[in-house]
Nucleic acid binder design. Structure first.
Lengths: 230, 230
DNA sequence: CGGGGGCTTGAGGCCACTCAACGATAGTGG
DNA sequence: CCACTATCGTTGAGTGGCCTCAAGCCCCCG
């Protein structure tokens, strides 16, 4: 299912890296796991004993419906934290989109630290709130945006989150994008072609490497929806 | 805009009522406000200085898009708490669906209490998580369910949350329901008529008073979607 | 009793879906 | 090294579910 990456060299602990400690008190155990593309990290309804941070790769969190319908709630990219539940079990299934390495920390210890450190507790809350905010914005997208607006919003979100140079290397397939946006993969493909034809985006070698040529026009497609500029 | 309800009699404080104190330490100031039907309680992007609890009535939280498109993220019913943001400003607009009375508590004090009381802090987190969970489920509904499944899910949710006797008195209009489910009000109306014609639901005096005749069949409409029985 | 908001119902249209074929790419094994 | 194959992506044709536009009803309320 997965292999454990040996990790002999001492590293700063997760909490410290996240800027989540008030002092330098807590020392927590730390492990890394690597998952092959498409493998499950945890399943819906499974006990939530660990919290994860993406080190390399990408993760999709989703729920399933009958008839194979799937709704991806979020993509977790390098640096992102996921799997932080408050109940005892996970509410999504999490899968590696590509080969992915994650750090993990036991939820039990996380809670213990939070109980002794108000600042840390507040950071936990902030993290949950940021997930909530993303979900709230995504409800707007899913419920009220056209396919063009959805794809434009997606491109802008990914551009903000993972672009290193001018080229955006998407880790996910058209089907992943479709299930994230609540449309079909054909619709995603058609809209991307349309944007390409209009000179708004370009493709590099692979179809997953996208360059945004006209960010203003792209933003306008989303703006005709959201009225709010970031 | 609103009138302030005089409130001379001493009452137990909000935190205690919510079971949110570990001891009986904090004494927080408490006020009540009453809003007429359709009036705004707070607007998107306004500073989030207060947290609210519905005492009577109902509240809708929504975001707007260009073209008058509106997405209602949640309805807040009697007993529900809303307006708890982590940033400094509200992410939704909150309006009274009908004449509504709310209690309010200053966010500033809430945070102060949380910093001194780990149990309380944990309850804040739990409350945020429960909002997150609702939003996550709603994403599934908005992105992947048919109009029939959406309406069925809505009826079951409301039945669970507000039914006193066998009759469910919805405070919201068809338009509210539509904007909650990401469809048009005509579609909501049509599906309700269809359910009525099929003997699954009945209407009482007004069109907002609904009786669920065949809960099993109604649940099946949602089940063909979610596969998960509560 | 008149007015207006909320609800229903019908007719027609459109956007996104379904079904299908084809092309491109990358990984696999002979 | 090169078929071979599977997966991914694009594109077209046709369908259908939900939307749009419109008319009319009901009920509450002034």
């Amino acid at each position: 299912m997965f292999r454990i990456t040996t990790d002999r060299t001492p590293r700063p602990n997760l909490l410290a890296e996240l800027g989540m400690t008030s002092g330098s008190k807590p020392m927590v155990s730390l492990n890394e796991l690597t998952y092959k593309s498409g493998t499950e990290i945890y399943g819906e309804k499974e006990p939530a004993d660990y919290v994860y941070q993406v080190r390399t790769g990408a993760v999709r969190k989703y729920k399933l419906l009958s008839g194979g319908r799937r709704q991806i709630g979020a993509f977790k990219l390098v640096g992102d934290i996921f799997g932080l539940e408050n109940g005892s079990e996970h509410r999504f299934t999490a899968e590696a989109v590509v080969e992915t390495t994650v750090r993990l920390i036991s939820r039990h210890r996380l809670e213990a630290v939070a109980d002794n450190d108000p600042i840390f507790a507040r950071n936990l809350l902030r993290m949950t709130t940021s997930n909530l905010e993303h979900a709230e914005n995504h409800m707007l997208l899913l419920g009220r945006k056209t396919s063009l607006e959805k794809v434009a919003a997606f491109l802008l979100e990914m551009d903000k989150r993972l672009t290193a140079a001018g080229v955006m290397a998407l880790p996910m397939t058209r089907l992943d994008i479709a299930d994230y946006l609540g449309v079909t993969l054909e619709t995603v493909s058609r809209v991307l072609s349309q944007l390409h034809g209009a000179g708004v985006i370009d493709f590099c070698k692979t179809h997953r490497e996208i360059i945004i040529r006209d960010r203003l026009r792209l933003a306008a497609f989303d703006l005709q929806a959201s009225m709010i500029v970031n």
